[in-house]
Computed example of a mutant assay.
Amino acid sequence: MLLRHGCAVSEVEISPADLALMRSLSGSRLLIAPNHPTNCDPALLFALSQAADLPFYYLACRENFNSWFGLWGMIIERLGAYSVVRGTADRESFRMTRDLLAENGGKVVIFPEGEVYSQNDTLLPFQSGVAQLAFWAMDDLRKQGREGETIALLPVAVRYCFVEDMTVPIDRALTGLERAVLGRESMTGNSYDRLRRIGIAMLGDLEDEYGVKVDPAERVRPGADLTGRMELMKSVLLDRAAALTGFAFTGEMTLPERMRAIMNHVYEVTSDDPHAERTRYREQLHREQAARVKPLVRDLNRVANWIAVEDNYVRAKPTPERMADNIRRLEIEVFGEARLRGMRKAIVRVGAPIDLARYTETYRLSRRATVARCTDDLELAVQALLDSSGCR
């Protein structure tokens, strides 16, 4: 019911071979690492758990437990979810993850991108902290004298494919966006031409409102690649949020890393959870700071909505799924919600487990480099699964 009515997913496709692989791993310790294109992905992992008849635990952001006045938190906790407080060194959550992974046959689902990024067949860079948790659990096994036992990272890919003709819904969605952004319908050109006109106009409006200076010739040059302007707009929003909160970015951080860092910081500031060590006066100051910072959440959600987008995303592969990805982003920006819907099939693919035992020697010599290499191997494995599971 949740998949059909909440996610517009009519079918979940899991191959018999992948189910056989999962069942063969019933006694293995697994950190299950899927991509995260939509908010419906946890339900697909639960469907995989049911189909393979294997219980999973799920690491979820603390704020997810507050939905429906806490009722949603009670439900997902009973289904195996536990929380992590973003923006903090949540030692209790880290400890729980390590303990669960060290259990015989323990299986924990963590989304290594850390964000819903709204692209059906590409990835955001994986966060190395996910693999690090698995290596820490391996350390725990060794400290318990269980040298011969191991943990594996399991790459999983989820992809959505429309099962109905989306020509009319896409045309209707573009017409609504044209009225809102351009002030008129613009039926000339194909769907991609219309999508691009809307995107260019929206980007120009954002640049004007935030005072971003762009060469006027670039704005009107036909066929100009918009990626540079889009990256600059994202940077301006992130730098603005950092300046207003007194947050400093460190080192050579990528845009996704900067976004995660400032979002975690803002979440920590705006969290309503009382702190046991704060005095009454300190709590008052904290609430005042939270009130000043909360308006920035809209800017940061705007960046998160567009973090993975480059100008050639649809042009490189103009599928209905990619068109829908960008249309939904535009709708969220303009209307505050994605309105385009169409029934989809969800494909879940499972890759070969990556046994951490094969990294043991290099991990002893250089922990950080080994964790980074393992993270890259995991990301490549998930992307390969996506590339081999195209919509038909």
Results as ranks from 00 to 15, higher is better:
Pro216Asp: 06
Cys161Gly: 09
Asp225Phe: 00
Phe69Trp: 12
Ala47Ile: 12
Gln144Phe: 09
Pro125Gln: 14
Ala52Glu: 02
Pro318Asp: 06
Glu149Ser: 09
Gly211Tyr: 11
Leu2His: 10
Val156Gln: 05
Glu331Arg: 06
Tyr267Arg: 15
Val130Gln: 02
Ile14Leu: 07
Arg302Lys: 14
Gly73Ala: 06
Ser388Phe: 08
Arg196His: 11
Pro125Ile: 13
Ser24Met: 01
Val85Thr: 15
Ala33Ile: 01
Ser83Gly: 12
Met1Phe: 13
His36Lys: 07
Met96Lys: 15
Leu71Val: 15
Pro222Tyr: 02
Ala243Met: 04
Arg86Lys: 13
Ala369Cys: 00
Phe335Thr: 02
Arg95Ala: 09
Ile347Pro: 09
Gln284Lys: 10
Ala324Phe: 14
Leu3Lys: 13
Pro169Trp: 05
Glu333Arg: 07
Arg179Ser: 10
Thr245Ile: 04
Ala131Thr: 07
Arg358Glu: 06
Pro318Met: 07
Phe56Tyr: 06
Gln119Gly: 10
Tyr192Ala: 05
Gly87Thr: 11
Leu300Asn: 01
Leu244His: 00
Ala51Gly: 08
Arg196Pro: 03
Asp325Cys: 05
Arg91Val: 12
Pro256Tyr: 04
Arg329Lys: 13
Gln127Leu: 10
Ala224Gln: 13
Ala51Met: 02
Thr188Trp: 02
Leu79Lys: 01
Leu255Ser: 03
Pro112Arg: 05
Gln50Trp: 03
Gly390Ala: 12
Ala60Pro: 04
Leu174Lys: 00
Tyr359Pro: 05
Pro295Cys: 03
Ala381Tyr: 01
Pro16Tyr: 02
Ala102Glu: 05
Gly351Cys: 10
Leu386Thr: 04
Ala224Arg: 15
Arg219Thr: 00
Leu182Gln: 11
Gly129Asn: 03
Cys161Leu: 11
Arg29Lys: 08
Met1Ala: 15
Pro155His: 06
Asp325Ser: 10
Asp165Cys: 00
Ala201Val: 11
Ala243Phe: 04
Ala304Arg: 13
Leu182Val: 08
Val303Tyr: 09
Asp121Lys: 12
Leu133Val: 10
Glu164Met: 01
Arg364Asn: 12
Arg184Tyr: 04
Asp171Asn: 08
Val9Lys: 02
Glu103Ile: 03
Arg258Pro: 08
Cys374Ser: 11
Lys107Phe: 03
Met233Lys: 07
Leu44Val: 07
Pro222Ser: 07
Ser186Lys: 13
Glu63Tyr: 08
Arg221His: 10
Phe126Met: 11
Ala261Lys: 03
Met138His: 01
Asp205Gln: 15
Val303Asp: 12
Phe126Glu: 01
Asn64Met: 14
Asp376His: 12
Thr167Lys: 12
Ala157Phe: 05
